[in-house]
């Protein structure tokens, strides 16, 4: 189990949404598999779709759920959204149709998540710049209009992938600090894990005081 350096204070739940074939799974794997090379020397804490990152000195475990992007599953995939703290909305810069569907994805996300959910727009396959179908500017404008964060990334090369996930985490953490995100709500998508060594040391005296009749 996670222990020592793999202790974490928060769990953030992410979802990756977007049309089929935009590279959601690849982004996820690019991000989660990188932990083997970078952060963790051991395979300890290797869990399904998770990675532990650090934001402002806090260890945060990211739990990322991939979703099915087929149109016919759209009606049923809203269970995924429940309790997501962050949503990565992905489109393929080489396929305009995936970009066109963004608004409906955005609608779903807005409807099915809580207002403090951070939505990040990712234009994937930036390595295929020659086949670009959607310009950066156009997407950037869409993002700005809807108040989304935006970046073009490549799951293949890993460019900007890390940034997208980290920026989302920072934004979520900020909203926690601001008090906009209620940690106690089940739907917040954030679980607070009090660091086991720290809190209990403070707690026992209080408990004893209570016990003393």
């Amino acid at each position: 189990m996670t222990s020592g350096p793999y202790n974490y204070s928060y769990i953030f739940k992410y979802i990756i949404i977007g049309d089929m074939g935009v590279g959601k799974s690849c982004l996820l794997h690019q991000f989660t598999d990188k932990k083997f090379m970078a952060d963790c020397p051991h395979t300890i804490g290797v869990e399904f779709g998770t990675r532990i990152i650090e934001v402002a000195g806090q260890k945060i475990k990211l739990q990322i759920w991939d979703t099915a992007g087929q149109e016919r599953f759209r009606a049923v995939t809203r269970s995924y959204y429940r309790g997501a703290a962050g949503a990565l909305m992905v489109y393929d810069i080489t396929r305009r149709s995936t970009y066109n569907h963004l608004s409906s994805w955005l609608t779903d996300t807005r409807n099915l998540t809580n207002p403090s959910t951070v939505i990040f727009l990712i234009g994937n396959k930036s390595d295929l710049d020659g086949q670009r179908d959607v310009t950066y500017e156009e997407a950037k404008q869409f993002a700005d209009e809807n108040g989304l964060m935006f970046v073009e990334a490549s799951a293949k090369t890993g460019q900007n992938v890390e940034e997208a996930f980290l920026e989302t985490a920072k934004k979520i953490y900020q909203s926690i600090q601001d008090g906009r995100l209620d940690l106690n709500a089940a739907e917040s998508g954030v679980q607070h894990k009090p660091a086991s060594p720290g809190r209990p040391l403070a707690a026992p005296p209080a408990a004893r005081d209570n016990c003393a009749c």
Partner: peptide, 23 residues
């Protein structure tokens, strides 16, 4: 436990199952 259902592998797969049933 809602926490468990929202995170973790079990929660994810269960969500998928819900989707499948609903489909």
């Amino acid at each position: 436990n809602a926490q468990r259902l929202m995170t973790g592998e079990g929660g994810y797969y269960f969500t998928n199952l819900c989707c499948a049933v609903s489909f």
